[in-house]
Design a protein around this nucleic acid. Structure first.
Lengths: 236, 236
DNA sequence: GCACACTGTGTGCGCCGTACGCAGACCATA
DNA sequence: TATGGTCTGCGTACGGCGCACACAGTGTGC
């Protein structure tokens, strides 16, 4: 255990509440999650671009370089922000079937992304290892508990839903920013996608219904249908 | 048509080869796609971080500010880079079924992402409107030509595959960078995901097979299974 | 051929992330 | 408790970024 601690980056050690041996220098004034919360506040208000080391420090009444006591680089700050932004996953009723559980999970996930759209712009260099991220992972995997899926199946199915939510959120993110953006896009697309070179796009545009309200759940159902087939295949 | 041109950002006008009325000042020395090619060269070599206005300009033997003749802001450069990086989609054998066509499309898409991993880090603010991006879109939509899917169905199914390829590429991107990264991750995950708090993750880790080779096509098949069900439903 | 309008570009600014080095706090020892 | 050595937190400062601005200079229209 002791040896293992050394292998973890400092930020993760702090997020997991592992105490380090006493060291010289001033005691930490607060917990790293307060830094994360301040950064999240800035990002919610002004987008990811509004998050800089100096702004976060100022938000806390700190000097810029003080942050480097908790964090080794800007990327570490992102890790803390993500953990802070998602929070604990909503509890899922385990008496429901896997499909309902995963739907609820996906909806909660999307809600979190709507609350914190900047999450989609955070550059990701590592798979998740922070506590709350693992909570979310655990919740999704647990939905498959009653199925015959292999460990790999469960993991990839979870990632499939994860990817779906992130992807759709990314596509719709800019539309929510200002209304009319999708209309403008439609106009431009109609102008550029001429029937001679882009017959299929042009034909599609003519018959398009501009009602996106159910798009999320409809698309999710398609994904879940695919997973359902996998489950049935494994049951045999 | 004339009026429409005005509505398009300058970069797109250039990408589409629309000539603007003669203007004062020096004639353009070259086409905007050469700028894109230079930027792509830099990004391929040193990641997206290696792409800056001054570096791109230097690559072309130019001063920094000269680029702003072609491009209004850094974001415009990204648009050109994406168009340049993807290139024309590989032609797809239209005698094949939709499923085979889409599989081929997805594989080509993924290959492009492997060749230009930085694409996944490019911040996206707008849906695609550049010529080659529309070519890719057209190719994917055409695969559904023989089906009874509605225009909305085709669009969302295409986006589903698109999202899937991007998402999986993102997840595996960092693993390809240095071998052993996934092992390190596995060790850390095993250390953190203790059975008491994360029983499902821990149990899954024990039974995990570390062979990712077929993950891409397997997951893609799950997605396509979902779409197939949609197609069958529409056929009724 | 001339004047004007408008574009392309050099200078310079504000901001970023963080390398570096020193002041000073902690712990071990006496 | 006094003191020395060690190691840490953080202020200063740097290189690089995207691009605002103003002006130089070209091409156009009369």
């Amino acid at each position: 255990m002791e040896k293992h601690e050394v292998e973890l980056p400092r930020v993760l050690q702090q997020l997991w509440g592992w105490e380090q041996p006493a060291r010289p220098g001033p005691k930490p004034t607060f917990h790293i999650s307060e830094i994360g919360a301040a950064a999240v506040r800035l990002a919610d208000a002004g987008g990811l671009g509004a998050v800089s080391m100096s702004k976060v420090a100022a938000e806390l009444g700190f000097t810029t370089m003080s942050l480097y006591r908790y964090v080794e680089a800007k990327d570490d700050l992102y890790v803390v922000m993500l953990d802070e932004a998602f929070g604990k996953p909503a509890p899922v009723d385990e008496s429901l079937g896997w499909r309902e559980q995963l739907t609820a999970w996906a909806v909660h996930f999307r809600d979190a992304l709507v609350r914190h759209p900047w999450v989609l712009q955070v550059p990701v260099f590592e798979p998740p290892l922070s506590p709350q991220q693992l909570d979310w992972m655990e919740a999704a995997l647990r939905a498959f508990a009653g199925t015959q899926l292999t460990a790999n199946d469960k993991l990839s199915s979870m990632m499939l839903v994860n990817i779906y939510v992130r992807g759709t959120a990314q596509l719709t993110a800019h539309l929510d920013l200002d209304d009319g953006a999708d209309q403008l896009y439609g106009q431009r697309l109609a102008m550029l996608a001429t029937p001679d070179r882009y017959p299929t796009i042009a034909a599609g545009l003519a018959n398009l219904e501009i009602d996106y309200t159910d798009d999320f759940t409809d698309g999710l159902d398609v994904v879940l249908d695919g997973i359902e087939q996998l489950i049935e295949r494994r049951n045999k």
